[in-house]
Amino acid sequence: MVRVTSTLRRDLLRAVAGGALAAGCGTEHAARPLAPAAPTSPSAEPPAGPRAYPGHPAQITHGPRSRPQVALTFHGQGDPALARALLTTAERHGARLTVLAVGTWLDEHPDLARRILDGGHDLGNHTQRHIGINTLAEADARREITDCAERLTRLTGSIGTWFRPSRAPTASPLVTRLARAAGYPHVLSYDVDSLDHTRPGAAAVTREVLAGVRNGSVVSLHFGYPDTVAALPDVLTELGRRGLRAVTTTELLS
């Protein structure tokens, strides 16, 4: 049984009242002018940038199977109230997430870049406009990567820790090469797909994640869906019962 706390219910009602939700991996957004960076605390530590992980392939689908850790990775776009609810829920459970942000989403909600980092989460690049990057010509694909990297740099001082292609679980050889040239040694894929973007209901999201997750798993989830917000407490509770810690992808591979 999926439980929705009063706090989550309040956040969901606010989100719905704010307008229609933006789909996680099914909606394209037109590019908008870059919003000014949100102010950062002078005491904030500089965000980490990409690093290479020797022994791991160019496209990473999972971490070590020998340690009881998993990475919950979120495609970052959609209603900001839902994003904040997911981040808060994770933090209350002692979990840390990996957020792959869409550049146009950062344009609309620049404060969320700092919010993600201040919560101890990883922040990365999920292209600028969230279109099918593997189908684009080389120059257009390069722009999708570098435009989002520019947003991240202006908002946080770093291009982020990870790159994930849009509208595809893995990157083509061309996109992998372009990502490396932009400063991302690895493409971050996943071995468990929650299918939350299909809106199957919170119970189905929970079942899908828990059926596939194991040591080292990288799970694909999305901001922007009430089902995911409602499912996350039960997912985290069951992971804890199994002795699995939800950590950033950086920690998973370190």
Rank of each mutant, 00 (worst) to 15 (best):
D147R: 14
G212T: 09
G103R: 02
R3N: 09
T176S: 13
D122H: 03
G26A: 15
A171C: 10
V70R: 00
Q128P: 01
T156V: 11
T249K: 06
A71M: 08
D111S: 10
T249H: 06
E208S: 15
F74M: 07
D111N: 06
G201S: 05
S166L: 11
G26V: 14
R242I: 15
D147T: 14
P169S: 15
P233I: 02
P200Y: 01
P42F: 06
L123F: 05
A179P: 08
R154I: 00
E138W: 02
G63C: 09
R241N: 14
V99W: 13
T127E: 09
H29T: 08
G157W: 01
T176P: 01
T40R: 15
P169F: 03
L253S: 05
D193R: 12
A179I: 04
G94Y: 12
P36Y: 12
R143N: 11
V192D: 08
Y190G: 04
A139Y: 02
D227Q: 13
L152C: 09
V218L: 11
P33E: 05
T250M: 05
H75N: 14
D234I: 01
R241V: 11
R142L: 08
R51S: 05
V187M: 03
D111T: 08
H29Y: 09
C148Q: 04
A231D: 07
R143T: 13
E238W: 07
L253N: 03
T5W: 00
L252E: 04
P50T: 08
G94D: 08
S43M: 10
A182V: 05
V219F: 12
